[in-house]
Design a protein around this nucleic acid. Structure first.
Length: 522
RNA sequence: GCGGGAGUAGCUCAAUGGCAGAGCAGCUGCCUUCCAAGCAGCAGGUUGCGGGUUCGAGUCCCGUCUCCCGCUCCA
């Protein structure tokens, strides 16, 4: 519950939405269930129920349509080429060695909070006096410069000329007791206590390929979909008439053994990504980076994240990932979830990955410079740079749920889900006002017509108010009621979810009207 | 990973260590001409899971799982 006294926040009397309420509605109405719930669940895994499945599918379909299938006009006013790809979850383990996922993340690691550097714990040693209260210096074993720096630090700190071999000893970092770690200066740090505990970073799920239990048969579930695109870059170039600049898009599952899954579906161990790797000439990185960043931000707005809860945030230099240290930058498109408020959580990252990945795979596969792309228009050979807009489908779905959740004490349901019509799991409910006088027959006929293109529901049971209330909680934007005038004047009454206002429409006009409301009329 | 809290029907909650219940929601039928109306009925549970104490455990004890909150983490 966020009650930050933002001076410009409108409508203060709207009841706050809590994550607890949203989770309860998701479960009650079948948006999201806990995975394996009857066995007590499993931490970090979630299932989508019937409504949630439609919602997530609508999100993914909209992304695919807008990124791959429909015309998209780029920064120079020309249509953009993006082609699709669908790679396997399990790949040759060499992919993950080349990408840096295996080497860096299977051993205990130590992070420096000050410099954001990461070290293998078993490579770090600590130099200093063993006595209580002494300041200690860490450096990477075998790094002579680091050792010299540590010695210099000690001498200066203790105001002495040289080390005292009896007191100043070198110890492996993992053997230093936890209570002494607060006094350690990290290898590249200037202050004490910035190193974390050694931690196991085995974030990839390991699995056995083939029936024989043999270490050589292990591989991993992919921790990101991006690498499948990079290793297929040449295949796509060779089999498709695309020319740089162009993009490859993929939607698919990825897996990370997160230390702490938390916040509903936000940090799950199995999740789905929607990624574009857009390949460009290095000189155009800044232009394309800015264009994708801005277009992606407006896209999230276009599917319903219209509130001030959506923001675009440029990363600080020291926050950049290893593959993006140099380059045009990285931005996060962030949403203020109830559980992050007043802070924000990442929906999508847009990063200039430079040529990090293509170059890494060129080296690891032994192709080296032979893997460089020849650009005929420029008569130049180079590793293309990459702009990567990488979005989370589950996080996007969660943001849609949080954004849509609208408490309204005046309604019988007490809440309604204000989905954008394009995202709404059910587009319309078709209800005979009463279950007689031929109204059910007319309704069922309309239902069959609309059903050819849209997810719609037909319900003739119980009172009309109850049916409206149910549709409010499902987020259905329109309810189409067959009433007595449907029999005489061939009209229906459309009830709008958000306003509860009603309007009359000719029955024959309903299909085209609904198409237009959802944006599928073109 | 650390600390705190919670867990009984789909939901909200009852049940002194002594037969596991109610309201709402759901389903069936009747009724019903616009926002969860009414009537009748049905169904819903190994009290998160596993041990222990006891003649007897939803209740007491131990363990464990899951969720929530705060740290930590998030290549």
């Amino acid at each position: 519950m966020s009650d930050s006294p933002a001076a410009n926040s409108p409508a203060p009397e709207v009841p706050a939405k809590t994550m607890e309420q949203i989770v309860a509605l998701c479960r009650r109405r079948g948006f999201v269930f806990q995975s394996s719930e009857i066995y007590g669940g499993i931490n970090g895994f979630w299932d989508y129920g019937p409504l949630g499945t439609e919602l997530k599918r609508n999100l993914k379909n909209a992304w695919w349509q807008d990124v791959v299938q429909r015309e998209l006009i780029g920064p120079h006013g020309e249509p953009i080429d993006v082609v699709g790809l669908d790679c396997t979850i399990i790949m040759n383990p060499k992919v993950w060695e080349a990408s840096g996922h295996v080497g860096g993340f299977s051993d205990p690691m130590v992070d420096c909070r000050e410099t954001k550097q990461r070290y293998r714990a078993d490579h770090l040693v600590v130099l200093g006096a063993v006595e209580a209260g002494a300041r200690l210096w860490a450096f990477v074993e075998g790094d002579d410069a680091g050792r010299a720096k540590a010695i210099k630090g000690i001498c200066k700190y203790e105001k002495r000329e040289a080390l005292d071999a009896a007191r100043h000893i070198v110890r492996p970092y993992p053997t230093v007791p936890a209570d002494e770690r607060a006094r350690i200066v990290g290898p590249d740090a200037t202050e004490v206590g910035t190193l974390t505990e050694p931690r196991q970073f085995n974030l990839m799920f390991k699995t056995l390929v083939g029936a024989v239990e043999d270490p050589g048969n292990y591989s991993y579930l992919r921790p990101e979909t991006a690498q499948g695109i990079f290793v297929n870059f040449q295949n796509v170039m060779d089999s498709t008439r695309v020319k740089i600049p162009f993009g490859i898009a993929q939607i698919g599952k990825a897996f990370r053994n997160e230390v702490t899954p938390r916040n509903f579906t936000f940090r799950s161990r199995e999740f789905e990504q929607m990624e574009i790797e857009f390949f460009i000439h290095p000189s155009e990185a800044a232009t394309w980076y800015a264009w994708w960043r801005d277009w992606r931000f407006s896209w999230w707005q276009s599917i319903g994240l219209t509130s001030a809860n959506l923001q675009l945030r440029e990363h600080d230099r020291d926050e950049l990932a290893h593959y993006a240290k140099e380059g045009a930058g990285t931005s996060d498109i962030e949403y203020r979830f109830p559980f992050t408020a007043p802070g924000y959580g990442e929906l999508e990252g847009v990063a200039h990955r430079s040529d990090f990945d293509l170059r890494a795979h060129a080296t690891a596969s032994g192709k080296n410079d032979k893997a460089k792309h020849f650009d005929q228009a420029r008569n130049e050979r180079y590793f293309p740079h990459v702009i990567e807009p990488s979005a989370g489908a589950d996080r996007g779905t969660l943001a849609l749920l949080c954004e849509a959740y609208t408490p309204d004490p005046s309604r019988p349901s007490g809440v309604f889900m204000k989905f954008n019509p394009r995202m709404a799991p059910v587009k319309a409910g078709i209800f005979p006002l009463v279950n007689k006088d031929g109204m059910p027959e007319i309704g069922e006929k309309l239902f069959r017509t609309l059903r050819k293109k849209h997810v719609v529901e037909f319900d003739e049971k119980q009172s009309i108010g109850k049916r409206y209330a149910r549709m409010d909680e499902a987020g259905t934007p329109f309810c189409i009621t067959i009433d007595s005038e449907s029999l005489t004047a061939q009209t229906v009454t459309v009830r709008h979810r958000d306003t509860q206002q009603q309007e009359k429409l000719a029955i024959d006009a309903v299909p085209a009207w609904l198409d237009a409301q959802i944006g599928t009329d073109s």
